[in-house]
Simulated scan of single mutants.
Amino acid sequence: MTGVWVLLATLVVATAAGLVLHARNGRIRAAKPAARPRPLPAPVAEALDPESAVTLVQISTTFCTPCRHTRAILSSLAEKTDGLHHVDLDVTERPEVAQALSVLSTPTTLALDPEGRELLRVGGVPKGPELLEALRPHLTAASH
């Protein structure tokens, strides 16, 4: 009988964890304003497009299946949206880059302005229309 209770408790905990992870996937989090922006790792700083209002830096790893889906969404958004640039940065061989950016899982997308300030970040596969809506103030402010 004890085994049944352990099994049920395990199922409840696993279901709750799955629901929490699913709810957090693709959620857009606005960056907290910092008094001084922290320096970006060199590969990220080099990826910034000074001609674009926003550079989407996708942090990926080689064997990350959701990263491929994220790449398709972000590159399509960048192609269709003025002032938006997308870069996919594979950190498989450079974990220090992910660590410096406080990235704990892939894919993670950082939206950076031309000076490298983080505007927002998305953990997991972003929802294209929601991401574009969250970026709109930054894109329209740069076009004026």
Rank of each mutant, 00 (worst) to 15 (best):
L8S: 10
L8R: 14
A9H: 10
T10P: 01
L11K: 05
V13R: 07
V13W: 08
T15H: 14
G18L: 14
A23W: 14
R24I: 10
N25H: 15
G26A: 15
I28M: 10
I28F: 01
A30V: 13
A30L: 11
K32V: 15
P33Q: 12
P33E: 13
P33L: 11
P33R: 12
R36W: 11
R36D: 13
P37K: 12
P37D: 10
A42K: 14
E46H: 07
E46P: 02
L48I: 11
E51V: 11
S52M: 03
S52T: 10
V54E: 00
L56H: 05
Q58G: 07
S60V: 11
S60I: 09
T61V: 06
F63A: 14
F63L: 08
T65S: 09
T65C: 04
T65Y: 05
P66M: 12
P66Y: 13
R68V: 15
H69N: 10
A72F: 12
L74A: 06
S75T: 15
T81M: 11
G83D: 11
H85R: 12
V87M: 08
L89H: 06
V91E: 00
E93H: 14
P95A: 09
V97S: 13
V97L: 13
A100W: 12
L104K: 04
S105G: 08
T108D: 02
T109R: 00
L110Y: 09
L112A: 01
D113E: 05
P114Q: 06
E118N: 01
E118F: 00
V122K: 00
V122F: 03
V125H: 01
K127F: 05
K127R: 09
P129E: 11
L131A: 04
